[in-house]
Simulated assay, not measured.
Amino acid sequence: MRTRLAPTISPDTEFFWNGLREHRLLIQRCGGCGTLRNPPQPMCPKCRSLHWEAIESSGRGTIYSFVMPHQPKFPFFDYPYIVALIELAEGVRLVSNLTDIDPAEVRTGMPVQVYFQQFDGELVLHQFRPAG
């Protein structure tokens, strides 16, 4: 049994998943107006430019929101587990798992730091834990 579901990779998101394999958290920056965006998209929602570049995030951020799913139970997760919406220092948000913390201690605004975890040989995912 797999330990995580594999993501669907498209030409628009391939750079992101390749970055994770290299232990780099990449986000898009519009080549037209400089706006950062996540999730990856082919067109800038602000200026409609199709030109963009990938920049590396510092991996630092804060918890914007979080949930602890209880149902449905997936055999590849240890319960309870924490799904967090992380606001990166660069200003964009992304969804990830929060680890290495008692669920009762999780608070919005808490500083966190990315780390990378390998699953099933080739799959590398971003995970977050308390900073410091």
Rank of each mutant, 00 (worst) to 15 (best):
A131T: 04
Y64D: 11
K73F: 10
G19N: 07
L94D: 00
S58I: 03
H23K: 15
Q71L: 14
I63F: 01
D78V: 10
A6P: 00
G34W: 08
E87K: 05
I9K: 05
F77D: 01
I63D: 06
P45I: 11
H70W: 09
N18K: 13
M43N: 09
C44A: 11
H70D: 12
R60L: 01
E14D: 13
A84T: 09
W52K: 05
I63W: 00
C30G: 09
P69F: 07
G34L: 14
T35W: 09
K73E: 15
R37Y: 12
R60T: 01
T3R: 13
L94C: 01
P40K: 05
L25S: 08
G59H: 10
L88E: 00
R107K: 14
M110G: 05
P80Q: 05
L98K: 04
L36P: 04
E122P: 07
E90G: 01
I63N: 04
C47V: 15
F77W: 02
T108I: 11
A131M: 03
G121V: 09
F76V: 12
G32S: 14
P45H: 13
C44I: 02
F16D: 02
A131H: 08
F66G: 10
Y79P: 07
P111R: 05
G121I: 10
V95C: 04
A104Q: 15
P11H: 08
Y115G: 00
I55M: 12
E90T: 03
Q127T: 10
P40Y: 05
G61D: 04
H51V: 11
D78L: 03
W17F: 08
R37D: 09
V112D: 00
F76Y: 15
T13K: 06
W52M: 08
L25G: 02
P45L: 12
A89T: 04
P40E: 08
P69T: 02
E56A: 07
G132Q: 02
Q71I: 12
E56N: 06
G59I: 09
T62L: 00
F16Y: 12
F128H: 03
F76T: 06
R37A: 12
C47E: 07
C33S: 14
D120L: 09
Y81Q: 03
Q117P: 04
I63M: 04
K73A: 15
I27D: 00
F119W: 15
S65K: 07
L50D: 15
F74K: 09
G32E: 13
R29W: 03
Y64Q: 06
E87P: 06
C30D: 08
G59T: 04
P75K: 06
P72G: 01
Q71C: 14
P11A: 11
A6L: 10
L125M: 13
S57G: 07
H23G: 07
T13D: 04
F15E: 00
E56H: 03
G121R: 02
P45F: 14
D102H: 12
T3F: 14
V112Y: 02
M110H: 06
F16G: 00
R60M: 02
G32C: 15
P75Q: 13
C47G: 10
I55N: 02
R60N: 03
Q117H: 11
N38M: 13
V92H: 02
F116K: 09
A84H: 08
Q118E: 12
P45C: 12
V67D: 07
L98H: 03
E53H: 05
V67G: 00
Q113S: 15
P103C: 13
R29H: 02
P111E: 12
R2Y: 04
A104Y: 09
P72F: 07
V106H: 06
G91C: 07
W17H: 05
T108K: 08
